[in-house]
Structures are given as C-alpha cells and as structure tokens.
C-alpha cells in the first residue's frame, strides 16, 4: 500500500490520473473501517486532508458551493439557513466524532444508498463538481447515482465540491433507525418545497438500490397544490392529498429485506415520513409553524 499526500488540488488530480485505482480518503469514516476490518486493501490511499479548498464553502446568490470535505458539523452550524435539509441530515450522521470528520464528498464517493446526505441533496437539487486532469464537469445529482455503491465518476475524477440550490422554501429530513443516535438508516426521506418554481422535490435513502426521488409523488403533489391554489391560499393540505403523496412515495421505493429492516417496513416508513415531513414543511410555509425544524 502506498500513501499519497498531495499538498494541493492540482497534485491530487495528477495523482489520481497517474493511479486511477487510488482510493481517496478524507474523513476516513468509510475507508478506514474497510481497512481495519480487512475488507479492502487498496494499492494507493490518496489523502485529501491537505487540500484546503475542500474544507471551504461559498454562499452564492442562488446556490452554495460546498467543498467536498466540509465536515457535517460545519454544515449543521453554519449552513442551516441556506441548506436546512442538508443541515438536518448532517445532524443525523453517526456520532459527533464522525460529524467532525466526515463530509458530503465521502457520502457521494461511497454512494451507499444509506448515505444520509443523499435524500437532502436530491430534494434540494444539487450538482456534483467532478474534476480530473482532463477538466471539470458538473454532474446533476439525479444522474450521479448509477447503482449500488456506484456513481458517475470516471476513474481519474475526484469530487471537488457540491453545488446545492439555496433553500427557497422549507425543507425537512427524517431518518428511521433502530437506535436513537449513532445509527445507519433503515430508510430516510428528504423533502423540499420550492415555492419559487411551485414544485416539490423529494429524496429517499436506503429503500432502493440507489438514493432515488419519488418523481411521481412530486408531480402529483405539485399538481394538487397548483390546481388547488394552495401556494397562494396557504390552506391546509387535505388529508387525502397527503395520504396519496405518502402512498406514491412508498411506491417509489424498491427496497430489500436485510438485517436492518424488512422491505415492507421500509415502504411503510417512507410513507409515514413523507406525510410527516410534508406536514412540517407545509405548516412552516403557511407561517403558522410551531414545530417545524426539530431541535436540530
């Protein structure tokens, strides 16, 4: 095993080009587990912790450019207003120690369906800034997840940043685990209202081979809200609409039975979370909120 320590982004790209099998490591919260438990013996470890840019973020007019290695703790503390869904999701990641170290780049690189950031990124709308010595490109989040623990990155590419649309409305995130802290998602759900475009976006974690959006549910809800004039009136969403939205979110799942939960439960729980997060975000949108964002 070789340990590559690039001092800059350019050096990191050069190293990755030279050694496409090199495994990038930043927070180490995935890679080191695999090494400690002898599940993986990469030929090269590519340490990105010396690349300062990856730990920075910029808040732009419409979006946030979030460095790939900005720790979850920083996101929770500093980006709650701009990225409320991701901030809530960040708060559910593992433990304080892990949140101090891990970042969104790692979640995207591993592309596990259970990664906590994915539903929030899908719901908010995001683009992954990938780069190699060949150049830089932006991959829409919807096109990023290509299979179980597979993503759209080329072998020589590294994730530099994620561009996430700033919240233009309430966002929520919910995750089911069988423990009240430090738990991997049995399933998770992200929801973002986009009053600007009068659309709703969702993200589902751990209930399909990849993180997915419930697009049919989004379209149904978008149409129902639009046709009913809800965006303008701010009326309470009828239970029948919420129920159907929840059912369509469940239907968007393609889960499996595993040691963490059954497929049936996952479908059920996604529906419950869809309904609840819709209620919380909608109450918040109506401005009569009493308990929307949790105590995150």
């Amino acid at each position: 095993m070789d340990f590559l320590r690039p001092a800059s982004w350019e050096e990191a790209l050069a190293a990755k080009a030279e050694h496409p099998t090199a495994v990038p490591i930043a927070g180490g919260t995935d890679v080191m587990v695999e090494i400690n438990f002898d599940h993986r013996r990469p030929e090269y470890l590519l340490d990105l912790t010396r690349v300062g840019d990856l730990y920075e973020w910029e808040v732009g007019e419409d979006s946030v450019r979030l460095g790939a290695s900005v720790p979850y703790t920083r996101i929770m503390e500093n980006l709650r207003a701009e990225l409320p869904g991701l901030a809530l999701a960040s708060h559910t990641v593992a433990s304080p120690q892990i949140r101090n170290r891990g970042g969104v780049g790692g979640n995207l690189g591993t592309a596990s369906p259970a990664g906590d950031a994915h539903p929030a990124l899908l719901a908010a709308g995001a683009e992954v800034e990938a780069e190699s010595v060949r150049g830089s490109r932006r991959i829409p989040i919807d096109a990023f997840y290509t299979g179980v623990k597979r993503n759209a990155l080329a072998a020589d590419e590294l994730i530099r940043a994620v561009h996430i649309n700033k919240a233009d409305g309430p966002q929520q995130f919910s995750k089911v685990g069988t423990r009240n802290a430090m738990v991997i998602a049995v399933c998770a759900f992200g929801l973002a209202l986009h009053p600007g475009t009068r659309t709703v976006r969702t993200g589902i974690g751990s209930a399909a081979p990849t993180p997915v959006r419930a697009t049919v549910a989004e379209e149904f809800l978008g149409a129902a809200l639009d046709e009913g004039g809800f965006w303008d009136s701010g009326r309470i969403i009828p239970p029948s609409v919420a129920r159907q939205f929840a059912e369509l979110c469940s239907a968007a799942c393609n889960p499996i039975d595993d040691v963490r939960g059954t497929a049936g439960y996952r479908r059920h729980a996604v529906g419950v979370m869809a309904r609840r997060t819709l209620m919380w975000t909608w109450e918040s949108y109506r401005g009569t909120d009493r308990a929307t964002e949790g105590a995150a």
């Binding site: 708060h91 009240n180 998602a185 609840r276």
Partner: peptide
C-alpha cells in the same frame, strides 16, 4: 415539549433522526 412548545427531538422516539415531533 420545550418552553417554546417546539419539540426537542432528542427526547422523542427516533431521537436525532427527527422522525416525529409528537405525532403518533
């Protein structure tokens, strides 16, 4: 229920995972 009548999710089922604000 906290003073502001917001839910402190840490004291609810699901904890930090923010699954309920008292519903159910």
């Amino acid at each position: 229920l906290t003073a502001g009548e917001d839910a402190d999710v840490r004291q609810l089922p699901g904890g930090l995972s923010n699954t309920t604000h008292g519903e159910g």
